[in-house]
Design a protein around this nucleic acid. Structure first.
Length: 201
DNA sequence: GAGTAGATCCTCT
DNA sequence: GAGGATCTACTCA
């Protein structure tokens, strides 16, 4: 198992990176508690060109300035006053691409996730959807702007790969306000995986 | 089982 | 002052 290098995040094709993240392990390690999960659903946000992105048209604020940093950082932000959404910043400086991690398949520390989410049994809602997965891994805005090269928080490759035919693309979720950009097929997920958000098949 | 309202608060205009 | 990259629970059938 090895950490993904910064070179992985700094490529220019955010859609390719999003697709490559499927099957990788997202690992958090704090307070002596290790939790990890395999990424099964992501959404790519194409910076200034994408109306659904916080950085559309070159918008830059205190909140989203992390998107303008070099790839390989986290960008966590609070949505609807309740949910923390975990993103990975990609590309290099000045190009605010980001990838939203929407769902994981729990691998390690399931009990810890249950405790954090106050659930009793490990059903498939534990890390289904960006709000849930952030809660399960203990991610908050406090972690925004951190490096994915640290030992507390990183994405690793354990050699597992999904085949091309297991991966599906679709429009993104919850971005209807983005006009025609809402129809972009920037969401990638594993077909038939129980932890992918939306309606189960 | 499906559809909808309410939660809840930070950020930007 | 409005609205958002969401989730849950409750209603109704």
């Amino acid at each position: 198992m090895k950490k993904l290098s910064v070179g992985f995040y700094r490529r220019d094709n955010v859609l390719q990176i999003a697709r490559d993240l499927l099957g990788k392990l997202l690992v958090t390690r704090w307070n002596g508690q290790t939790t990890s999960g395999r990424i099964v659903e992501v959404e790519a946000y194409e910076g200034v060109l994408d109306k659904a992105s916080h950085a559309f048209g070159g918008r830059k604020t205190n909140r989203n300035e992390i998107m303008y940093a070099n790839g390989g950082l986290t960008y966590v932000y609070l949505c609807y006053g309740i949910h923390h959404l975990f993103n990975v910043v990609t590309h290099t400086k000045k190009t605010p691409h980001a990838i939203l991690i929407r769902a994981l398949e729990p691998v390690k520390g399931v009990e810890i996730m249950l405790e954090r989410t106050r659930k009793r049994s490990g059903d498939n809602t534990l890390t289904k959807g960006p709000g849930n997965l952030s809660r399960a891994l203990g991610l908050t805005v406090w972690h925004s702007g951190r490096s994915l090269q640290s030992k507390e928080l990183f994405i690793a490759d354990d050699g597992f790969v999904y085949s091309e035919k297991e991966i599906a693309a679709s429009p993104r979720i919850g971005v209807d306000y983005a006009g025609k950009d809402a129809a972009r097929p920037n969401r990638f997920y594993i077909k038939g995986n129980l932890f992918v958000s939306g309606k189960p098949k």
